[in-house]
Design a protein around this nucleic acid. Structure first.
Lengths: 192, 192
DNA sequence: GTTTTTGTTGATTGACGAGTCAATCAAAGT
DNA sequence: ACTTTGATTGACTCGTCAATCAACAAAAAC
């Protein structure tokens, strides 16, 4: 039965199962066995491909980050004005992909996990830096010096809205997006 | 050796040790044994007073929430104008007490924990509702209808700044407070 | 046709941790 | 004196789970 070239398929399935499992359990206290079962393989195979459980967790995080990064890049590609660039970042941040309950749960847990895990922290730092850099870049032509400051505020607001969505009632990307946009508009009105 | 009336002392010590331990480990994957050792007692005693580990965790969360609530109430007591009320809430939210690394870590972890635990979720809901209610109440005379909307934005911003502090460089309450105040000022300028 | 490589698992190990229990010690009550 | 009650623990049970291993199946390579 064993066809060749299973590795990428299994890896993808395991990563996907990991995210789903984290979403269901609501924490990183998730067993390799259950992840493997969900992916339709034995727990031994998960270890075969990923080594330690930690590596599987990091791979899942990397996958989520990569998906988000792709989304941002894609949205940014079609934006010409600075204002549109910011809107694109917001839109990508609250896009359906990153907004599925399981993905939100995974994000949230990785945030926490990054506190005690070097690899996770590095990954998250990359995301943080990139988000800030993108925001600063788009804000500079609009508000000059204040760009760095405003960027940090917007980034915090994005994160905060994310978390509230994870806890309170069902996720609502549009509303979160609109909320950040409203704050942004006020920033720009003042700077004008 | 056994004096009477140890219960409240032990409970307090265990709760304190729990928070410290969570802060050190960076997650809720903390053993009862280590908490107990830190509090200078045996793990059996921790179980004797709190039953399950979960109850100990919830007690720690309740303690943090209560401390925060006291801070808000105290700050609110000396505020006369609506604007001062909001400032008081912000000041309490980013006060030194709630801003110690271990406490931040605990907050963060409880946020996640609330996803899968009913008791934790209830506690967090109380905090959320109270924060929102306080903000709405203070905002109403300033912005009328828009109070609910602005309150949610501010609440999210507070949470977001909190998290960033937990991950990025050392906590800086003043700066976080100023950042929210800046957004608030813009809200009020528009409404005026 | 044999060897190597890749895919896969059941069974097992070893560690660790939550929760229980029986027992001990000392103070307070009678 | 003696009995109840609160404080406290070491030792033990029981379950869980990550990680390993030996083994097998099938395709590819030689």
């Amino acid at each position: 039965m064993p066809k060749l070239g299973m590795e990428p398929i299994r890896r993808a399935a395991l990563v996907k199962a990991t995210i789903a499992e984290i979403g269901e359990v609501g924490s990183l206290d998730v067993t390799v066995s259950r992840i493997a079962r969900r992916a339709g393989v034995s727990s031994a195979l998960a270890h075969h491909y990923f080594g330690a459980k930690e590596d599987l967790l990091v791979a899942a995080m990397r996958h989520i980050l990569a998906t988000y990064g792709r989304g941002v890049r894609a949205a940014l590609a079609g934006a010409t004005t600075p204002r549109a660039r910011i809107a694109a970042i917001l839109h990508a941040s609250f896009a359906a992909d990153n907004f599925e309950p399981a993905v939100i749960a995974a994000w949230l847990n990785f945030y926490v996990h990054a506190q005690g895990n070097a690899a996770a922290r590095r990954l998250l730092n990359v995301y943080h830096r990139r988000l800030r850099s993108n925001l600063v870049h788009a804000l500079r032509p609009l508000v000059g010096e204040a760009a760095a400051d405003h960027a940090e505020t917007l980034a915090a607001l994005i994160d905060g809205l994310y978390i509230r969505q994870a806890l309170d009632a069902g996720p609502d990307g549009q509303r979160a997006e609109a909320r950040v946009a409203a704050v942004l508009d006020r920033m720009l009105e003042i700077a004008r």
